[in-house]
């Protein structure tokens, strides 16, 4: 039971990451591979504040969101100038830079050693060290993120995002300054990733840079492509499947020495098969 709760918490964290990345990749058509950077910004901010001050989880979460908003606004302006493949390369570069900062800013991030002993949240006398309580907390955030995202994509704003994805020149001729739309959705998405990061840091109680490298961004990308681009429920489905996949693979019985590596191989195979036979994912509404 305890283990199921653990999986459910991981699911909700990755579902937040998936839903938020889908806003940028699935709806706006910007192939971003830098989501783990903002996941990391949220996680590190929370970890640093919780271990070095006593401001509490929720204040540190807010700080994480604020920093993610500032950083994503700045880098978003630069990224908005890139188109297509160049956008993907630009985000790739940014994720690499952020990873390097986590790794090398030793005074702040403890470098490769990581930050340990991150306390669990406590609020109104409820202690979230209890995993079930934490599950409730992470589900509340998932609901908030999901319904806010749904609100965004169902609005006129969301319709413009899709039009940008389909033909940016055409939609700008009809009077839209696409720069603002791309920037704002990128900032919203990054802020949500920071929320996931805060939850992650205080749940696992230990973080190090390896959780926020490019590979992690790719993993989130696989979640949304598998589940379905431009479909929020698809991202929930993708997160559920990929969190459960290691458990499923246990029954396949790979030798224990190569189990972890085989998991990576399976992710790769899934991605290739999807691109070949179902580029819009399981319930997606947009083909890359």
């Amino acid at each position: 039971m305890e283990y199921l709760i653990h999986l459910a918490i991981l699911f909700s964290i990755y579902a937040i990451l998936g839903v938020s990345l889908n806003l940028v990749v699935g709806y706006t058509g910007l192939l971003s591979v830098t989501h783990a950077a903002f996941f990391g910004v949220g996680a590190y901010t929370t970890a640093i504040f919780l271990t070095k001050s006593d401001i509490g989880f929720f204040s540190s979460l807010i700080f994480g969101i604020v920093i993610a908003v500032v950083v994503s606004s700045l880098i978003g302006v630069v990224l908005s100038k890139f188109k297509g493949d160049y956008y993907a390369l630009g985000t790739f570069g940014f994720n690499t830079i952020v990873f390097a900062i986590f790794l090398n800013w030793q005074n702040l991030t403890m470098g490769p050693l990581g930050i340990s002993g991150i306390p669990k949240p406590e609020l109104f006398g409820i202690n979230f060290a209890n995993n079930f309580n934490f599950l409730v907390l992470s589900f509340i955030f998932l609901f908030l993120v999901y319904f806010f995202s749904r609100f965004v994509v169902n609005s006129s704003f969301g319709r413009v995002l899709k039009a940008i994805r389909e033909d940016e020149i055409a939609i700008s001729v009809f009077g839209y300054n696409t720069l603002y739309f791309k920037l704002i959705i990128f900032v919203i998405s990054s802020a949500m990733a920071a929320v996931a990061g805060s939850l992650f840091a205080s749940y696992i109680t230990f973080i190090d840079p390896s959780s926020f490298q490019l590979q992690e961004s790719m993993f989130i990308l696989v979640i949304i492509i598998l589940g379905g681009l431009a479909n929020l429920r698809g991202s929930l489905l993708g997160a559920l499947f990929l969190i459960l996949l290691p458990e499923i693979l246990r029954f396949v019985g790979f030798p224990s020495g190569i189990e972890a590596q085989m998991r990576q191989v399976v992710y790769g195979i899934i991605l290739i098969l999807l691109m070949l036979y179902r580029p819009q994912g399981v319930i997606g509404e947009y083909k890359l």
Binding site: S156, R159, V160, K162, A163, R165, E166, D167, I169, A170, I171, F174, G175, A230, E285, Y286, K287
Partner: peptide
């Protein structure tokens, strides 16, 4: 140049 993976109605509403 249409917004291809959008409905006909959305192609109009968006403008």
């Amino acid at each position: 140049r249409l917004f291809e993976q959008m409905t006909v109605l959305d192609n109009i509403l968006v403008v």
